[in-house]
Design a protein around this nucleic acid. Structure first.
Lengths: 336, 336
DNA sequence: CACACTTAGCTAAACGATTAGCTGCGCGGC
DNA sequence: GCCGCGCAGCTAATCGTTTAGCTAAGTGTG
């Protein structure tokens, strides 16, 4: 690879002049400029971002750490992030913590070593100490995405989990369901706890109390939801409707329903939060609340870049997006 | 952020000694080692990978460029790559060319500037010149993934597209279908051309010639497949079965079928190549050929790392994975 | 014509690590 | 007692940039 010295030599100028041409950072006479440009072309020179980063003190690198990259929701997040980040002139380093705190720790450390300028983090667990412990010293600009932790120092972008759970449940209630169960995520996560609380609040508002054995939670995964759903639905007094906390869990639940020889929505109605893109042609079409992934990611990157530029003085900002109900045909009215 | 100088100063040693301790690259007396370790801990020192990379001449960075990150198939690829790459001690920079040649060009250039040590590339278009033009000078270790181009210099990891198309089509033929159509990807891509050729070969082997208007192709996207399928199925003489070239196109086709008020498999049978994970609980379960994504990615990374280590002398290797037929219930026997 | 002022382009010092090569100490052998 | 050798740890060069500060030539003014 040609270096700036090679270019300087072939063009017969100093490296400072080459740098000035490349970065347009100082006036260079048309003649020299032309010579430099020609040399660059001839040698196929491209500046080393490594060296530039070292000198300038910033790396043009942003990191994203998601908690489960095999979840289509986070795949969409990464996809959106890649695009937005490119618009801002950064490149994206992607990490998957796989819901493991120790992996997250290792990753955050690596991000620091890579001199990434900022991080979009879907935090694992609920202990914020870790985040700041790892990033101590020069604090790393961080936007918490999707989930929050007890942490008033970071910017956050989340959805209104309570509303999500409530709207989906209200839809079921409006159809006449009374014995509603739920399969939600780990309750130490805001996405798990919040959605369940929304569901319970909706029930309570109608004076209903769900049966304890109908309220389940498990990991945010297809197979976890499958097991939980299977176990729940094999009970003699199964509910007439279920609220399921995310897209892949809804799929797992549908699979359990199918395997048990039940029919949705005939035997049981399903409403969820979050969605799997593209499955609108399959049956049933799941009724769910959706959140605007692309907008959320755009906002997260915007906040992140702003914090990188303006530093820790800026007050932490917490942006909450509202979910929207999308009606499919996975819920049937309960006539009785 | 603490630098190696700070550590050296606090420990009362030279930077060389600190480096020796950090990298375990030379003997350091227990006493100094302890002092250095203490200083590192106290200052929360972590070496700058930027500086290290600059000096050592390699960056611990691998790049992956996929042609459509919103496609769940490539999301799975990125997910698998992230995990494997971490095992080898690298970090992964992710790019999405979105099937745009000019974006790919820009990305490859950026990869070069970032001093990534190697690239897993899902190439856009069919002109290999671009790849080598961009990577000229010190040639960039590259593994072509999923698709190949006219290029005998790179390692490649692909599936046997011909077999994929043939197996899926044979399944339909075995059920008695004769008027089979297809919706495949862009024919300048090996994944488009190959799968279609496999389908046609299967037909031909039974002495059948598909009607030209039943053979369609379009972009590898849900919405593209939807339009094509809709147009195809609205014709009076629609086929009794369709082979669809990938997972998202199968979903688009199913959506078209649903929107037209048709039933799968009653009115039309669908077999595809590639799959969407987790949708086994929805109806119909699409009959398809699957390929071992994780193994393919592992192999690609293995090849890439090997080439980085051993240089361009190694003969290019071309690994082909075989697809496997997975039967769902999207195909009905044709009795007539 | 001398002086100050501008400015194009240069030199050289960073950035934070690694590492070749040097220094000086301690020890063993004759 | 001296010489030579081994080796722990240091100094300083280096990776490829950017950039502060300098030089020298050009310009305009009194």
């Amino acid at each position: 690879m040609a270096t700036i010295k090679d270019v300087a030599q072939t063009a017969g100028v100093s490296t400072a002049t080459v740098s000035a041409v490349v970065n347009d950072s100082a006036y260079v006479s048309p003649e020299l400029r032309a010579r430099v440009l020609a040399a660059i072309k001839e040698l196929r020179y491209a500046p080393s971002l490594l060296a530039r980063s070292l000198r300038r003190g910033h790396s043009q690198l942003l990191a994203i750490v998601v908690s489960d990259l095999s979840n289509p929701f986070f795949a969409r997040v990464v996809c959106a992030a890649e695009a937005t980040v490119a618009d801002w002139g950064y490149s994206l380093v992607v990490f998957n913590s796989d819901e493991k705190p120790e992996a997250e720790k290792r990753i955050l450390n690596r991000i620091r070593m890579l001199s990434c300028e900022g991080t979009v983090l879907v935090p694992v667990g609920n202990s914020n100490q870790r985040i700041h412990r790892e990033f101590e010293g020069r604090p790393m600009p961080t936007v918490l995405f999707g989930r929050t932790v007890d942490d008033d120092k970071s910017d956050t972008v989340v959805i209104d989990n309570l509303s999500a759970g409530r709207h989906a449940t209200n839809y079921l209630l409006d159809l006449g369901h009374k014995r509603i169960g739920s399969i939600t995520g780990p309750l130490q996560l805001t996405t798990g706890r919040g959605r369940l609380d929304g569901m319970l609040a909706a029930m309570q508002a109608r004076g209903l109390t769900p049966e304890p054995q109908h309220i389940r939670s498990g990991e945010f995964r297809e197979d976890a939801a499958y097991s939980v759903a299977r176990n729940l639905l094999e009970q003699p007094d199964r509910p007439s409707a279920l609220y399921v906390a995310n897209g892949v869990m809804a799929l797992g639940t549908m699979r359990a329903i199918a395997d048990l020889g039940l029919k949705c929505p005939d035997d049981i109605s399903i409403a969820s939060t979050d969605t799997i893109p593209g499955i609108g042609g399959l049956h049933p079409r799941i009724t769910r609340t959706e959140h605007p992934v692309v907008d959320m990611v755009d906002e997260a990157i915007r906040l992140l870049v702003d914090r990188i530029d303006r530093g820790p003085e800026v007050e932490p900002r917490n942006v909450v997006f509202q979910p929207a109900l999308v009606v499919g045909d996975s819920c049937a009215p309960l006539d009785r």
